[in-house]
C-alpha cells in the first residue's frame, strides 16, 4: 500500500525536462523524464563530456539535469558520440537503466 502511494506521489510530480535549444540548423534537446529518473547518477561518469549532474528540483525531488554551462552548446558537445555514419548506443542512454534520457536529434 505504502509503495503504491509512493508511486502515485512520484507520478503526480513528474515532468519532462527539455534541455537544449533550437536554432537555424535544427533542434537539439536532451530530455530527462523525472518520472523515470531515479537520481542514481550513473549518467554522470558515463558521459565523456560530463554534461550531467544530479540536483534538487523546484519541488524538492532529486533528478539528473544537463548542466547549465552545456545547455546552449549540445549540438557540439554531443557530437563525438554521434558519428555521421549513424548514432548507436549513446553512452548516456546505455548507462541510464530506467531509460529516462532521450535525444531529439
Amino acid at each position: 500500500m505504502l509503495s503504491r502511494l509512493g508511486r502515485f506521489f512520484v507520478l503526480s510530480t513528474s515532468y519532462i525536462a527539455n534541455y537544449g535549444y533550437a536554432d537555424g540548423s535544427g533542434e537539439y534537446y536532451v530530455s530527462i523524464d523525472s518520472e523515470k529518473c531515479n537520481a542514481c547518477g550513473e549518467c554522470i561518469p558515463a558521459c565523456p563530456m560530463h554534461i550531467f549532474q544530479v540536483e534538487e528540483d523546484d519541488y524538492g525531488d532529486m533528478a539528473a539535469v544537463v548542466k547549465e554551462s552545456h545547455r546552449k552548446s549540445l549540438k557540439y558537445v554531443c557530437a563525438p558520440c554521434k558519428p555521421t555514419s549513424g548514432v548507436r548506443n549513446l553512452p548516456c542512454q546505455k548507462a541510464c537503466k530506467p531509460g529516462a534520457i532521450v535525444h531529439s536529434w
Binding site: T13, Y15, I16, A17, Y21, A22, D58, Y59, K72
Partner: peptide, 12 residues
C-alpha cells in the same frame, strides 16, 4: 500548476 514538461530557448 505543477510543471509536467518544459522547454526553454535562451540561446537565440
Amino acid at each position: 500548476g505543477k510543471v509536467t514538461a518544459f522547454l526553454m530557448n535562451d540561446k537565440c
